[in-house]
Structure formats: structure tokens, C-alpha cells
């Protein structure tokens, strides 16, 4: 029977905490950047101009159909060779996950935008609103609310996928856990603790999401 001993692990919990902070930092950066990139990609893909439409389509499809680990390696090892730039683990990770989550957000947003009834466009243009005004004031607010659950799901997925950055030595929670496991010879305790941290963090995140969703519903705009 295995004897659990969290003592040595908890004594060094500062190492894990630092990793957790890095995980949060990366997730928040990728999430914020991803929303901006996603919105731009979605608008470009829906644009009447072909010159905007197809490059956006290519970016979205490439990042949706290739494994995130490959993208990460490409940005970290490949990009400095192709163009001479200094690449830090954080920069490579932030770039990868910003564009990658942007690609997914773009598809979610696009689906949300096209799901808004034609009558909304017509009503807005009938009072003289231009297409960009209609998009900003009428279509997007409704599309984002409609797509909120899917975007929440994607954000949770993103937080978990960031564990891949340990492979390029970015000191996220998982990377730190590995270090600690080797140091304390207590991998079982370390990874149990790490799982618990993710569980709590993501549960809090989705709880926050549900709270927001309920607030949308309370504003009464959805027919009861």
C-alpha cells in the first residue's frame, strides 16, 4: 500500500505557486490576444472583399488543423531560423496560443454573427446605420452573448492546452511540477496536487462564466 506524504511537496509549494502564476499569465495573455485576433479574423472572413476573406480563411484553417505542439515548436525553434528574431519561451507560447485560440474564437464568432436574423440588419440599415455601425452596435453584442457558452468552453480548453509549453521550458505549473517531482521523489503527490489546482482554477472560471450567463438572461432580452 502506497504511503501518501504531501509534507515535502507542500514545503516547496512556492515552486508550484510560481508555476501557477506563469500559467495564469500565459492563459490571460492568450485569451485577451485571442479574442482580438479572433474578432479580426471573423470580420475578415465575413468581409465582402476577397483580399481579406481568403487570407483569414487560410490562417484559421492552418491553426485549427495542426497540432498545437507542432505550432509551438514551429514558433520556438522554426521562426528564429526563418527570420532572425530572438525567441523566448514566453513569447513563443504567447504567439502560438494567441493565434491558435484566435482561430477557434473566429469560427465561434462567425457562427454567432451569421446566426443573427436578417431582420436585425434590415432594421438597422432602415434607420440609416452603416454596415460597420450595425456590426458593432447591433450584431456583435447579440452574437457574443449567443456564443458565450462556446467561448467559455474554448477558454477552458486553452488553459489546459497551455501545459504543452513545458516542452519549450516555459516555467508553467506543469514544468514546475516536473522539477519538484524530481527533487522530492514524490511525483504522485505533486501531480495529484497539480490536478487539484487545475480543477479548482477551472471550476472557478466556469462558475464565473455561469454567473455572467445568468446576468445576460436577467437583462430580459431573451424571450421567457
Amino acid at each position: 500500500m502506497y504511503e501518501w506524504d504531501f509534507g515535502p511537496v507542500l514545503a516547496e509549494s512556492g515552486v508550484l505557486l510560481a508555476g501557477f502564476r506563469n500559467t495564469l499569465e500565459l492563459t490571460a495573455t492568450a485569451l485577451a490576444g485571442g479574442l482580438v485576433v479572433g474578432l479580426l479574423l471573423a470580420l475578415a472572413r465575413l468581409s465582402p472583399r476577397r483580399r481579406l476573406r481568403w487570407p483569414a480563411g487560410v490562417v484559421i484553417e492552418v491553426f485549427r488543423t495542426t497540432p498545437p505542439l507542432v505550432q509551438l515548436f514551429w514558433f520556438y525553434f522554426g521562426l528564429p531560423i526563418v527570420v532572425s528574431v530572438e525567441m523566448t519561451p514566453f513569447l513563443a507560447a504567447a504567439l502560438t496560443f494567441t493565434i491558435q485560440s484566435g482561430a477557434f474564437f473566429a469560427e465561434i464568432l462567425r457562427a454567432g454573427i451569421v446566426s443573427i436574423e436578417r431582420g436585425q440588419w434590415e432594421a438597422a440599415s432602415a434607420i440609416g446605420m452603416r454596415p460597420h455601425q450595425t456590426m458593432r452596435r447591433v450584431i456583435l453584442p447579440q452574437a457574443v452573448k449567443r456564443m458565450f457558452p462556446s467561448m467559455m468552453e474554448r477558454s477552458i480548453e486553452l488553459m489546459k492546452t497551455t501545459t504543452l509549453v513545458a516542452t519549450v521550458s516555459y516555467a508553467d505549473l506543469l514544468f514546475q511540477a516536473n522539477e519538484l517531482a524530481q527533487k522530492t521523489f514524490r511525483p504522485l503527490e505533486v501531480f495529484t496536487l497539480v490536478a487539484l489546482v487545475y480543477f479548482v482554477a477551472i471550476t472557478c472560471l466556469s462558475g464565473l462564466g455561469s454567473l455572467l450567463e445568468r446576468r445576460f438572461a436577467r437583462s430580459g432580452e431573451f424571450a421567457a
Partner: peptide, 11 residues
């Protein structure tokens, strides 16, 4: 213009 389906902005 006034539409058959009203088309009010629900938000």
C-alpha cells in the same frame, strides 16, 4: 420603414 416582424433590437 416599419417591418412585419418588428425587428426590434432585443439587447
Amino acid at each position: 420603414m416599419v417591418f412585419q416582424q418588428f425587428n426590434l433590437f432585443p439587447h
